[in-house]
Amino acid sequence: MTCVRGVAQWYRDPVSCLQSTLATLLLEAGHDPVEVLGLSWEFRYHPGDVRPEEYYWPCRRPGDLAGSLLPLHEVTSRWRAIDPADPLGEWRDALAAGRLPVVAVDNYHLPFRPAYRDVHAAHLLVVYDVDGTAGTVAVSDAMPPSFAGPLPAEVLLRSCGAAGVDDEQDVFFSGPVTSGGRWLDVRLPAAIPALDPGRLGLALDVNAAGFAALSGDVWTGAEGLRRYCARMGTAATPELLAEAYTFGWGMQAQAALHGELLRTLGARWDRPALAEAGRRVEQVAHRWTAVRVTAAHGRADPAACAGPLRDHLGSLRRAYQEAHAALGRAAADLR
């Protein structure tokens, strides 16, 4: 974690801008990002919903990206359109009210992003200051190469307003379904109590119940995972293979953070079963690597990658099973 001009940044290699931007909001509010971002853990796939955005997440509450990512906290969010008559006004108002706007941008227009003037890709930034006199907006981006500082307002607005553009260089995070001209208004609770064994145990029970529950149109839990793996293992098209890279990022990032949280707390509280469960959850995250990368490289020739992909999907399901068995032991130990 580093502090740059008053705004805090946080990053882990498995996360995307979705987690890193919310982490900045959490840090500004005095919360530990891993404790909050790592508390919920689920499998959730919405067939037909995956959009080519780095920050894609299958939302259990439509339109509420942050609240869907953090269902165990009283967090809510909604997308708001940028007002063309006063594009900076709402950001200034949100900042005055103590909220940091999260803006959707196209990396192609941002001088500090590697994709600048090269690749169109949907990304998130945090706005932490608006200087109407200077005509600048201060933004924070914790994703490497990290940046925090002022941008000319017209540059940021051009990036925000860019409509979705298909870019063959980035089939995972660019496309016409990515809408521009919007920002995410996130509301955090006034207080988030620190985790103790009792509160963590309740969270583990909620996560376990979700994994055991039956799946419907939305593919959730163990049954949803089974359906997802069956589909990917038998009928993967180039589109589904590309989608796996995008969709899998969210699943991988959440598993990595949940695992890190449990392993860290297990060590802090001297609860070996909890630490072991955390490591098992991290193994799920690492199994997602094989699925995502095999699918991404194999999308040009689905038949050629079908065998290894099936093997990796099988390993992924086993990793989830082992992790949940370990979580059951850890939860029992916490009671």
């Binding site: 290699d13 498995p14 690492h286 690597t289 094989a290 995502r292 990368v293």
Partner: peptide, 8 residues
Amino acid sequence: AGERRVED
């Protein structure tokens, strides 16, 4: 090196 974290 891994293209993301690898355990295999």
